[in-house]
Amino acid sequence: MINGIRVATVEEIPEGEGIAVSRELTGTDDDIAILRDEDGSVWALNDTCTHQTASLAEGWVENGHVECPLHSSKFCLRSGTVDGLPATRDTVAHRLEVRDGEIYLYPNERP
């Protein structure tokens, strides 16, 4: 995908929170969570926790991680690697670009 999919502006996502982008828009197998860390950086991971069905976009974002709201599994925002049980499987990270305050998603492209 050359130009990416515009999914939001940085200002639409408060620091420490996320939004979910529908799989119908992205063409992926799962919705994608766009997550904004407390330093203002934005990241994209598959939205469904790999432990049980919960939205990572509804989780807590801080210190380079997102914590699942259901059982507190933690995932690295940069890579999708599990950094806290009970999840044992990594999630998928997707490439993002911020241009003039707008967030563009490149589904299925590694960051």
Rank of each mutant, 00 (worst) to 15 (best):
L105A: 10
A33L: 05
G4S: 11
T48S: 07
R6S: 08
R78F: 12
C76N: 11
C49I: 06
P107G: 05
Q52C: 12
M1H: 13
T9C: 06
I5A: 12
K74T: 09
D37H: 07
V66S: 03
R6M: 13
P111W: 03
T50H: 12
E24V: 11
R6I: 10
N3V: 14
S22T: 08
G64H: 04
T26K: 03
G101P: 10
W43Y: 14
N3Y: 12
W43S: 07
T53Y: 05
L45M: 09
E67L: 12
L96T: 08
E24D: 13
G27D: 14
R110T: 06
E102M: 02
Y104D: 02
T53I: 14
C76K: 06
S41E: 13
E97W: 10
S55G: 06
T50E: 03
D83K: 12
F75S: 05
E62W: 13
S22I: 11
S72C: 14
E15P: 04
G4T: 08
L77I: 01
N3P: 12
N3K: 11
E67I: 13
D31T: 11
G16H: 08
N108I: 14
T91E: 08
V7G: 01
L45S: 09
G27P: 00
E12I: 07
K74I: 13
E102D: 08
E17M: 10
S79R: 06
I34K: 00
S55H: 12
L56E: 06
R6E: 09
D100F: 08
P86M: 11
E38H: 14
L85F: 14
E38K: 13
G80C: 09
M1I: 13
G101H: 07
G64P: 04
S22Y: 08
H65R: 15
D31F: 01
R89H: 15
E102F: 10
H94Y: 04
G84K: 01
L96P: 00
N3F: 15
L56I: 08
V10M: 09
G27L: 10
T48L: 06
H65Q: 15
L35Y: 04
V82K: 07
S22M: 10
V66T: 07
P69K: 02
T9S: 03
T91P: 05
G4D: 04
W43Q: 01
V66C: 10
T50P: 09
I5T: 09
D47G: 13
K74H: 14
A44Q: 01
I32Y: 06
G64M: 09
R110S: 15
G4F: 01
I32C: 06
C68E: 00
G84Q: 07
T50Q: 02
